[in-house]
Design a protein around this nucleic acid. Structure first.
Length: 581
RNA sequence: GGCCCCGUCGUCUAGCCUGGUCCAGGACACCACCCUUUCACGGUGGUGACAUGGGUUCGAAUCCCAUCGGGGUCACCA
């Protein structure tokens, strides 16, 4: 049976790059009717947290990447997943597997496959420096004069509080990678790396090898940043008499500017925006306090000056909101908040480095597919070798297409669910009808669900109070003041008609419309135009737009007015009439 | 710097293994036009790439070599 695994370390939300790795592991297992295992690599005590682990489980489940084995979890639809169906694996949290690691290590020490070492950080640093001066890469090797008996005794004396290193035999390692082909690593590049830290926890290299063996992992799909770790892992496997699984190293994903996609990008964007806006620490602190977020001023000042510092993510979001920027999405959770659909994220991520190599009926390449398709068609052969850049525009385009293909009721349901989590105030502000109309208006105009509620989105006009927006002078001039040319010239002597005059006349007409829905409003509008200025829809529509939104751009007027509701629409028109007089 | 990997439109990629059907196809982005009460959607068209230099061959994006370029990695992080 084919067994794949995804093994994140719980140091934050799931990174978008991790989604692809997990997705490929999942799809490969599905395709071959195998098992997809999830293992939490929490051997770094300082950085790991239980809440991060839970967050990652939620992120994966939201994506629809469900694990057959791993931490027990109940999805939002009530499906129980994970656990240990083979009843032989044990905990899926490495921190809970210490006895197993220690047992293997004891065995290794006994056979001199591993040994305790007592070098201080200062000594290590000195050795590295010396190697650098000789223009060599530092490799730790046990000295020929190493006194094993003495070392063992010393280890006892310090109660095991020392590092255990692998006594690496230094053989040539040839790895047959399913993506990159055969790669040869010469022995002089491997060393006696640490397998157990002084705190008693195994290092990544060691835990991975032991767990993959014990869990029966047959295929390891992971990022190419691990390629150079492979000879270490293979050496360990050989020393321990383990199988060597099949390896497939995935190409890397970068930002459009070729930098690494990092959580710090969010801080960077906010920091730069603050500097550009001339915001100093006190001003930022005040803004954050306004959003119920209390952060000491020195911390903010330090953050402003230090590129390596990060603000807590909710503080960062509050700040971004205040300075009206959107933070670059990096984690799955960011994309979720932004209103991307999980199936679209999986679709797009799968395309970064893999493609089905199939055509649509019209001859274009098959690019849009769902999880079921991946489960059926994913393969290692069609994974590319080249790194790629993450193109948000294409993701957004896919998301827009998916959103647009949704029936109204489904779009509404998704928007409601999104808003309930991230913009709860909005839903209480609108009636069911209004929400429907907002969604209808927004559907072909937004790329994400958050844009529906955005002050820069297509229904932004409905997010401000009736008297809280300005009339764009250019729009006023063009739509309201300029004379309207009527085809059959008006009766001789009469003053030329203007948008303003038409608007005034339309206000009375609009007042009689009942019920106040997009359809009835469009109907009334057409009747009005036929009567007053046949064929000149724009001469009426644009003045109305300016009156109710301040400018000449909005969704179809029926929807624009219906979303506002009759009282609000009329108030806005009256306000405009008064303002432009 | 050592080692390892990679190099097709701005971006993601098809084609490369099994040379000719490729003066290189698709998608996103961009531009233009059409549709249209504005915006968006939709439709049509367009700009745009085989890193460079040598080979091999009747013929090379496809095979070989070199150069250049990009990336990864060199922790008691994973």
């Amino acid at each position: 049976m084919i067994i794949t695994r995804f093994a994140p370390s719980p140091t934050g939300h799931l990174h978008i790059g991790g989604v692809r790795t997990a997705l490929f592991c999942w799809a490969f297992a599905r395709r071959h009717a195998g098992h997809f295992t999830l293992r939490i690599e929490d051997t770094d005590q300082a950085r790991s947290s239980e809440s991060s682990a839970r967050g990652i489980l939620e992120d994966l489940a939201w994506c629809g990447i469900l694990w057959d084995e791993g931490p027990a979890f109940t999805t939002s639809s009530g499906q129980a997943i994970g656990g240990d169906p083979r009843h032989c694996v044990g905990s899926f949290y490495q921190a809970q597997r210490l006895p197993l690691y220690n047992q293997v290590i004891a065995h290794m020490i006994e056979r001199d496959l591993a040994y305790p070492a007592f070098d201080t950080p200062e000594e290590m640093e000195a050795m590295r420096k010396a190697a650098a001066e000789r223009k060599e890469t530092f490799r730790y090797k046990r000295s020929p004069s190493y006194d094993r008996a003495a070392a063992l005794a010393r280890m006892q004396a310090v109660n095991g509080a020392c590092v255990i290193r692998f006594n690496n035999p230094g053989e040539v390692v040839k790895v047959k990678d399913e993506i990159l082909g055969e790669i040869k690593f010469e022995p002089e590049h491997t060393d006696d790396f640490v397998i157990r830290k002084a705190d008693g926890f195994p290092t990544y290299h060691f835990a991975v090898v032991v767990d993959d063996e014990q869990m029966g992992v047959t295929h390891i799909l992971r990022g190419q940043e691990h390629l150079n770790n492979t000879p270490r892992h293979v050496a360990l496997q050989r020393a321990l008499g383990y199988r060597t699984p099949v390896y497939a190293h995935l190409p890397l994903i970068f930002n459009p500017d070729a930098s690494k996609m990092s959580k710090r990008d969010k801080d960077k964007a906010a920091r730069e925006a603050c500097k550009k806006a001339g915001l100093t620490a006190p001003a930022i602190r005040a803004a954050l306090l306004n959003s119920q977020y209390d952060l000491p001023e020195p911390d903010i000042a330090a953050w402003l000056d230090d590129k390596s510092r990060q603000l807590p993510s909710d503080a960062l979001r509050a700040l971004a909101r205040h300075i009206r920027i959107t933070l670059p999405e990096i984690d799955v959770d960011d994309f979720r908040r932004a209103g991307y659909l999980p199936q679209v994220i999986c679709n797009y991520m799968a395309l970064l480095g893999w493609n089905p190599g199939m055509k649509n009926a019209d001859g274009t390449d098959l690019e849009k597919f769902d999880m079921a398709f991946l489960a059926q068609n994913f393969n290692l052969e069609r994974i590319g070798k080249t790194n790629s850049k993450f193109d948000r525009a294409k993701l957004a385009s896919f998301n827009q297409a998916a959103l647009m293909a949704l029936p109204d009721d489904q779009f509404v349901a998704l928007f409601r669910a999104w808003a309930a989590s991230y913009e709860p105030a909005l839903l209480s502000k609108w009636s069911d009808d209004q929400v429907l109309w907002v969604c209808q208006a927004a559907k072909p105009r937004v790329k994400t669900l958050s844009e529906v509620a955005s002050p820069a989105g297509p229904v932004a006009f409905a997010l401000v109070a009736d008297d809280a927006f300005a009339f764009d002078p250019v729009a006023v001039e063009k739509a309201l003041k300029k004379p309207v040319e009527l085809a059959p010239s008006p009766s001789p002597g009469s003053a030329p008609t203007t948008g303003l005059a038409l608007l005034r006349a339309f206000a009375d007409h609009l007042n009689t419309v009942e019920p106040f829905t997009p359809d009835t409003i469009e109907h009334a509008l057409k009747a009005f135009v036929d009567h007053h200025c046949p064929g000149k829809m724009g001469a009426v529509a644009q003045p109305i737009r300016v009156a109710v939104t301040g400018n000449t751009v909005s969704p179809a007027l029926g929807h624009t007015l219906a979303i506002l509701g009759k009282p609000s629409a009329l108030r806005r028109i009256q306000r405009c009439l008064a303002a432009v007089q």
